[in-house]
Each structure stands twice: as structure tokens, then as C-alpha cells.
Amino acid sequence: MIKAERKPLEEIYNMVKGYSSILSVGCGGCTSVCLAGGMRETILLNKELSDCFMKEGGKAVFSVVVTERQCNEEYTGDISDLVSECDCMISMACGVGAQLLAETYESKPVFPGLNTMFVGKDLDVGLYQQNCRTCGDCKLGYTGGICPITCCSKSLLNGPCGGTCLDGSCEVSRDIPCAWNKIYERLKAQNRLDNILNIHEPMEWIDKGPGILVQQGYESRYMKEEKK
């Protein structure tokens, strides 16, 4: 799932200090799960902001609402009554949710309360690790299930750089294992080394506009919107 972290209070305060009626919009999806933008965190933000305003001699009214999933129009559209009463919003969703909120209520300023970090796995409660860069051209099939785009600091596709340390760590940090050493070891154990002995061609980066995904079987439904 998407992992995010709260922006520093000061940064959020500086964005909203000129407003007097602030609606903080949490998200019941990924950012609730990663403990950054759920009901509890949104209430906490409002409390902290309220203290800030008080300290600086400002005055503002704070409201809280949590949309089930801010990346879904049906849910973001459901809070129009609250939006009409505020003069700016703080989105506690990922960047997608914040954008949809801004798009849904075009006349209202939307400020991000979170930094969207990555798509990651849960290592533990409140501890996450990036595992996928959503590159759109998955290489896991030949890399033994270890993502070279994410796990190699240089996103190399054909093997390690010269920066692998003698202990098998990455030049960037002793705490990061060389992804390619891991790929080698895993494939060797699975007797699949031939997977990485051939040269893999340059990546076909999909890097244009906001990408659109039409799920297989749904092509006919969206064909007129799809430009190809």
C-alpha cells in the first residue's frame, strides 16, 4: 500500500495561516493504515495547528472529516456540505487523494498535510519499507523476485555497479544490502542464474502525463477515452 508521513507542523502552518476556517480531510484508506492520515492523526493535526494559531495570535476554526478513500470521486464528492463551510482544506491523503480533492472542489485551496513516500510493505507497526517504484515494466520475473529498480540504489538492470562493498552492502550505506548480490544468490539457489546472464535491453520507461490504466476486460467500456 501507499505509505506517507506527516509534513512538519511548521510547514503546514505556513500554508494555512492566512485562513480562518480550515477543514482537515483524512483518508480511510492507505494513509489510515500507515498511521499518517486517518481520523486520529487528522484530529491530532488540528489540535496542533490550533495551538499554533493560538500561540501566534491568530484565530481559525478547525473541522475534521475522513473520506473513506480520497482517491475515489464518490467519497470525496460526499463532503460538499462541509467543504462549502470552509475556506481551505488540508488533505491527509496521498498525493492522489489531495489532487482529487482539489479537482473536486476547484474553488477551494487544498494543501497537503502529508508527504507521500512510496509503495511499501509493512515491516512492523509503523515501520515500512519501499518495495516497488510502480515503474510499469515489472522485472521481478528474471530477478528472483527482488526489484532492481527499487532495491538497487542505482536502479540497474544488468547487474551490480562497482560500488558493492566486500561485506555485500551497497556503497550508499552499510545498512543496504547490494540488491544484485541478493538477486545472484537467490537465482543461484533456484538454479536460475541464466535469467541474468543475458543482457537486458534498456527499460521502457512509461513517463508521460498522468498515466491511465484500463484493466483487461474493461477496454471496450473505456475505449473512447483511451487515446492510443
Binding site: 480511510g28 489510515s32 498511521l35 486517518g38 486520529r40 475522513v66 512492523d124 507497526v125 509503523g126
Partner: peptide, 19 residues
């Protein structure tokens, strides 16, 4: 869910056992 949140009832995601 919206009504429950107003009652202070919602799902929390950090109540599980830490590893």
C-alpha cells in the same frame, strides 16, 4: 463509518503486536 467516527469509533491500525 462516518457516524461511527463522530462517536470516536474507528479502526486503528497500530493495535497489533509489534514484532
Amino acid at each position: 463509518r462516518s457516524i461511527c467516527r463522530e462517536k470516536g469509533i474507528f479502526r486503528t491500525y497500530d493495535t497489533g503486536e509489534s514484532k
